[in-house]
Design a protein around this nucleic acid. Sequence first.
DNA 1: ACGCTACTGTGGTCAGACCATAGAGGGGGA
DNA 2: TCCCCCTCTATGGTCTGACCACAGTAGCGT
Lengths: 235, 235
Amino acid sequence: MAEAVRAWRTVLEKIETDLLDGALAPGDRLPPERELAANLGVGRSSVREALRVLEVMGLIRTGTGSGPTSGAIIIATPQGGMAALLRLQVAAQGFPLDDVVRTRLVLEAAVAHALGAEPDPDLGAARLLLEAMAADDLTPAEFLALDAQFHLALAEASGNAVIAAMMAGLRSAIESYVNAGATRIDDWDATADRLRAEHGAILDALDRGEPQRAATLVHDHITGYYARAALVRDA
Amino acid sequence: MAEAVRAWRTVLEKIETDLLDGALAPGDRLPPERELAANLGVGRSSVREALRVLEVMGLIRTGTGSGPTSGAIIIATPQGGMAALLRLQVAAQGFPLDDVVRTRLVLEAAVAHALGAEPDPDLGAARLLLEAMAADDLTPAEFLALDAQFHLALAEASGNAVIAAMMAGLRSAIESYVNAGATRIDDWDATADRLRAEHGAILDALDRGEPQRAATLVHDHITGYYARAALVRDA
DNA sequence: ACGCTACTGTGGTCAGACCATAGAGGGGGA
DNA sequence: TCCCCCTCTATGGTCTGACCACAGTAGCGT
C-alpha cells in the first residue's frame, strides 16, 4: 500500500525538486535514462513516461547518439507545451472556442497597453512581418500564419514570456478554425488589405505611445476578423 | 528512415484527430492500451507514453480494474494540466516569476471587469470562501489556500474556462513563493485582516456593478500583498 | 600523419512477463 | 429460492531484457 504513488510521478517530482533547488538548470543534461531508473528504483519505462511529459511540455529536448547534444537537456521553451495543452483541450472540448477568443482579446489588449506605455518599444520584428505580409502571392493560410507571427512578435516585444507563450498557444489552438473561416470570406483580397492596414495602424499607435488607442485597434482588428469569418457570435 | 516520426507521437495525433472529428468525446473510453498498440502498429510502451502526456495535461483519467470506471476516459479538465505546465516552467526558469505575477494581474483585472459588467454575477462560492477565511485559527498556508480559492471562484464565476484554468495554474506555480513570503510578514494577523477586508470590498464593488473600481481593488489587493511579502520588485 | 573502423554511450522501440485491481458470473450452502 | 463467496477476466501499472539507430571517440593500420 505504500506504493500508491505511481512510479513515473516519483521521477517527475525528483526532476521538479532538482530544478527548484538548483541542482538542475537550463542547459544542463539529465542523467541517462538507465541511470535515473537505477537511482530512483524504478523501471526505465517509467522514467521514459516522465521524460515524455517533460518533452511535450517543452522542458527538455532529447537527442540520440553521443556528444554534447545527446541525452535529455533542459531547455524550458514553453510555447510548444502551451500550444499542445491548449490545442488538445480545445479538441476535447475542455475549452470552449469562445473562451479562447475572449482570452486572446484580454491578452492582446494587455500587450498593447504594455507596449504603448513603453518609451521605445522594439517593434522591429513586427515591422518585418508586416512587410512580408505585403506580398501579393500569399495564400490565405500563409497570410494568416504571418498574421499570427505578427501578434506573437508584439507579445514577445512586450517582454512577458508568460503572455507570449499563452498567446502563441491560444492562436495555435484555434488555427484550424481561423483557416477554415478564411474560406468563408467572399473577398479575400479586400480582407487582406484591411488586415494589413489595421496592423499598420496598430504599430503607429504603439510608436506614438498611445496605449489606449492601440488596445482599441487591436480589439477591433481581432473581433472584426472573427465576425467576418463567422467564427464566434460576438466578443 | 521512414520512421523519423516517433511512435508515441503517432498515438497522440491519432487521439487528437479522433477528438477533432468527433470520434472521441468527453466521457468516452479509449480503447485498451494493448488494442491501441495493435491498431497503430506500435508497442504498448509507446502508447503508454502518449497516454501519460494526456493524463498530465488533464485530458484523460486512467483507472485499473474493470467496469465503467476503468480504462482511459476523456475528461478534459484543464486546470491540473495548466498548473503542471506553469509550475514546471517556473521551476525551470522558462517563466520569470515577475511575468507570472504580471500575467495574473492582467487576468484578474479582466475577471473583475467581466463580473462587474454582468447584471447579476454569481458570487455565492466566493462569498462562502470569504466566510471560511474569517476563522481565526487558520495557519498562513491554510488562509492563503482559501485566498487562492477565492480568486479562482471569481474567475470561474466569470464564465471563462480558459482564464479560470490559467489563473489556477499561475497561482499554483507561485504557491511556494507566496507561502514563503508569508513568513516574511511581521504581523500576520493584521495582514490577514487586511486581505479579508479587501476581499469584501471587491465583492462589494462587483455587487454594485462597478467594474472599474473592482479591477482597481483587485490590482491593489494583489500588488499590496506581493509588496509586503517582498516577492517582486514592483508590478 | 591520416583515414577508416570498431567501440561505446545514448535515446527509441518492442515483446513479454508479472502484479493489482475491480467488476462479472457461477456454484454451493443456508 | 436466495444470497454469499470464490474464481475468472479485463484492465492499467511496472519491470526486465533485448535490439536498433545514431553520433562521437579512440585506436588501429597504412
